[in-house]
Design a protein around this nucleic acid. Sequence first.
DNA 1: AATAAAAAACCTGTCATACAGGTTTGAGGA
DNA 2: TCCTCAAACCTGTATGACAGGTTTTTTATT
Lengths: 239, 239
Amino acid sequence: MQVQDTQMEKNGAGRVSEAIGAITRHIREHELMPGDRLPSELALSKDLKVSRTVVREAFRSLAAMRIIELNVGKRATVANIDHGAMSLIIEHGVHTEQINVQQIYDVRRTIETRIVTLAAIRRSDEEAKTILKLAQAMADALGSPEQLMEHDLSFHLALAQASRNPVFELIVGAFQGITRQTWPIGWKSRTSEQARQTMIDTHLRIANAVAAGDPQQAVEAMSKHFDESVHALLQAGLS
Amino acid sequence: MQVQDTQMEKNGAGRVSEAIGAITRHIREHELMPGDRLPSELALSKDLKVSRTVVREAFRSLAAMRIIELNVGKRATVANIDHGAMSLIIEHGVHTEQINVQQIYDVRRTIETRIVTLAAIRRSDEEAKTILKLAQAMADALGSPEQLMEHDLSFHLALAQASRNPVFELIVGAFQGITRQTWPIGWKSRTSEQARQTMIDTHLRIANAVAAGDPQQAVEAMSKHFDESVHALLQAGLS
DNA sequence: AATAAAAAACCTGTCATACAGGTTTGAGGA
DNA sequence: TCCTCAAACCTGTATGACAGGTTTTTTATT
């Protein structure tokens, strides 16, 4: 396919951008699915009549968005959707003060309220078990913030998975990066033993409600969870 | 707020990944803000003791996520958050059948229901005017689907902006790419003149409710909008 | 001295070439 | 038919070159 030289669009210009477009089109036209291999860099550079450098930079761009996957020696393959890129984008937004943590919590509350509703309705027994186990793991890791946080993150991601909507999963995943950096702040602001136990209990309540298939209860508990979290962050003076 | 690095590439190996991490760290340590310039490729390649090739590929990766911006002749600059990358990621997910359109609509409904609530409360008079104008523009473009669609997209984005939460704006923007590809399907499935007029009217109702500062009404109208849209897509047989 | 014009210094985009490892393929043998 | 292994192919990285842009410095002018 020939690409036309239209304008000096901020993004549309440059051989690399053209190559990105051509590769994306190639994936769609050939209906490539995750795991399928793309042409080699040399083949593409001949096809598009550009140097290998250009193809490589295009590949890197697509790999950054996790649209394709690169492996040394192997050909590039179509990738599964993954929240890695989104996570970095959000982190960048926060670090450059274009997004603040409260705004993220508002979005998370909105999303996760919906998620527990769906999870309570759709979760498989397997998923219910996983969710309960993660909440329990949190309770058991009360003394180890590091581990506690990871279980917390896994817990929310497991709920998203149980919602059976990969977009919810993607969004929840997108917040993991920045959450890893802010979670400790919220944790430290819970100074009393009681406040910490309450947080754990709330997670257990969510897990139980989802396992019981009770959306109402699940939403209520999740709502409480976010009230607590936002309160803790405000306490810590997080803008 | 102080946050620490969690530069944990899944592709931990490879000089390019390391360079990406180093550049990201550089941005954070120097607290660079959007518009600020980064070191030149040559300077970085000396600093990191890698070839310019590696630095360039790292730059391309960051540019793909819109974390930095590249310009010929000029130095790379820190970028404003932008939904371009997310849009491509979502499109990829749909094209590879990892996400279906209904799932996107469920997420959009969840998000946009919250958005209109916030917009009704927070919108400035300026924003209210813009939103009303876009809804009116839709009504005026009844005969030109192309334009109608663009006004529709702008309408939803304007609402997100009025919510005063850039993360909502980001997410709504992230769906624009795929929406551009599915919107015509929904439109064509509205065969009767009445169905089409109803869609326009619903948008006007949303705009009026937001302008009137009535969250309740706004939510109700938005909910109706999504009922209609999902119905239209099902009618068209979209999985 | 202030300013405008011109030149030098710097930068990015792209190409070509080279080479060190991985990976895939295919020919030939068991 | 199945296995082995070397040839062919591929990616990651480095180096050097050169054509435009851009920024900074210098020089000329008012």
